[in-house]
Nucleic acid binder design. Structure first.
Length: 165
DNA sequence: GCCAACGTTGGC
DNA sequence: GCCAACGTTGGC
């Protein structure tokens, strides 16, 4: 039984197209305890909404899956790296990352504005005012509701989603 | 570019 | 342990 998640990324830094090209990538640089703790709960093959933030329009751009469970984020103890944290060491790592693998890119962004218009999604952290959490759990109901929203909007580019096993 | 909301830091 | 100050996130 898999779990569902949403992960935010600024497309200028790392977009769904970057993941599509790389197929698999580490999700590094998370420096927030709540987000980190959620990453530690992730299991292989969990599904992830790939969300584009700080762009126009913000929203869900596609789907990825967890291909490697949480392991130490080596960028945290690299003093030359942007994500360096002096409190994290190789012998006592403070931060973790997971690997994510591309599943599908949607033909258009499912915008935050559209998500906010759905009463069914009012309890999501994402749609709450002031919420800045970059990694969050999604309930099965929310996941399926969002997939339905997407399908009602327009067909998927290329083949239909095949991630259901 | 603005700024509200939030998380973190550090003085006391 | 409180809380003011600061830095960051991220929508608009």
């Amino acid at each position: 039984m898999s779990n569902y998640w949403l992960m935010k990324s600024e497309p200028d830094t790392f977009s769904i197209d970057d993941l599509k090209r790389l197929k698999t990538s580490p999700w590094d640089g998370v420096r927030n305890y709540q987000a980190r703790n959620f990453m530690k709960e992730m299991k292989k093959d969990d599904l992830v909404f790939f969300y584009h933030s700080s762009c126009s329009p913000p929203g869900i751009a596609g789907i990825a899956k967890i291909s490697k469970e949480a392991y130490p984020d080596h960028t945290s103890w690299d003093p030359t790296h942007t994500y360096f944290d002096s409190k994290s060491t190789e012998s006592n790592p403070k931060w973790v990352m997971v690997d994510v693998t591309f599943v599908e890119k949607w033909s258009s962004i499912l915008t935050l504005a559209a998500l906010k218009q759905s009463p069914a999604l009012a309890d999501m952290l994402l749609t709450k005012k002031g919420s800045r959490l970059s990694v969050m759990p999604i309930t099965k109901n929310e996941w399926e509701y969002i997939i339905t929203m997407l399908k009602n909007k327009r067909p998927l580019a290329g083949q239909i989603a095949t991630y259901h096993q």
